[in-house]
């Protein structure tokens, strides 16, 4: 997550290379953009894409394989999986975005404290961050859930808090770098106060790369949130949440693989699409 991709140097003149660039770089981005638009549409207006009720049971049709009536098949209670996957988009996307927001905001606060504060606060915050880094992110999220109890809101908080140390560290480094730049030096010489320096000069320059990183982080947050639901720590069943659907299908992997395949594909596609789009932003930011 912290490694920014190295984009190929773009030779604008050579047409063959331009064509290659289109197919190798642009094509995945177009596909990813389309997937993301689809997921967004599903999240904003699920009823338009799938007018059915994601919770409606129909035991007689349980375990139906994908067909025209049920394009993704049905689950163990005869619920239509297509409807459930579409209606699950909002939950997954919301948790992904909300968790990333929590992570970046908390990271911002910690990063400012460490980057602008005294040497002592910097040392204190940095040591705390190092301790948190010692724990793998998902494990940290599990620890938080253990205290807060399961549920969609604790899961969002947990993922958000677990990603915060990463953002905090990048903020801190960026803020320190910008603070010692000639531009800020010049402003200081001109007699600007510390608050003006921070708000007008340091933050805007430190924020940009983190915004790009956060876009990348949304994909990861979605995967983590799904993992927590898969472990039964997120949205309770029968809510149409992708991770929870994956868990419900696990028991029937041999006889009804579509119960896991389609929610799984949705998670992979969304996470991959946000990552590709995030990388595109990152590339644009560097150019």
């Amino acid at each position: 997550m912290t490694i920014l991709p190295e984009l190929p140097v773009l030779p604008a003149a050579a047409p063959t290379r331009a064509a290659e660039w289109r197919s190798r770089v642009m094509a995945p981005r177009v596909v990813a953009g389309a997937v993301l638009l689809g997921v967004l549409a599903a999240a904003v207006a699920p009823g338009l894409l799938a007018p059915g009720d994601p919770l409606a049971v129909h035991p007689v049709d349980a375990f139906s394989a994908p067909s025209l009536a049920h394009p993704f098949g049905t689950d163990d209670s005869g619920r239509d999986l297509y409807t459930r996957v579409v209606h699950g988009a909002s939950a997954s996307l919301l948790i992904g975005v909300a968790a990333t927001l929590i992570g970046t905001l908390l990271g911002l606060v910690l990063g400012i404290a460490a980057g602008v504060g005294t040497r002592l606060t910097d040392a204190a915050v940095s040591r705390v961050l190092e301790v948190l880094f010692a724990l793998p992110g998902l494990l940290l999220a599990l620890v938080i859930i253990a205290f807060a109890g399961p549920g969609p809101i604790p899961a969002t908080l947990a993922v958000g808090l677990a990603t915060a140390p990463g953002y905090a560290r990048i903020f801190r480094t960026r803020i320190r770098a910008v603070r010692s730049s000639e531009m800020v030096e010049a402003a200081r010489v001109l007699g600007r106060g510390p608050l003006t320096l921070l708000v007008r000069h340091v933050l805007p320059n430190a924020l940009a790369p983190v915004v790009v990183l956060a876009t990348l982080g949304v994909g990861q947050a979605i995967v983590w949130a799904s993992s927590l639901s898969y472990l039964g720590l997120g949205s309770p069943p029968p809510a149409p949440e992708w991770g929870a659907m994956l868990e419900a299908g696990r028991t029937y992997l041999q006889i009804a693989p579509w119960m896991t395949v389609f929610p799984g594909l949705a998670i992979v596609a969304t996470a991959a699409a946000t990552t590709v789009v995030g990388r595109a932003f990152a590339g644009a930011g560097r150019r």
Partner: peptide, 9 residues
């Protein structure tokens, strides 16, 4: 009604 559910599950 539980019969259909019991049969299918």
């Amino acid at each position: 009604a539980v019969n259909d559910g019991i049969t299918s599950l």
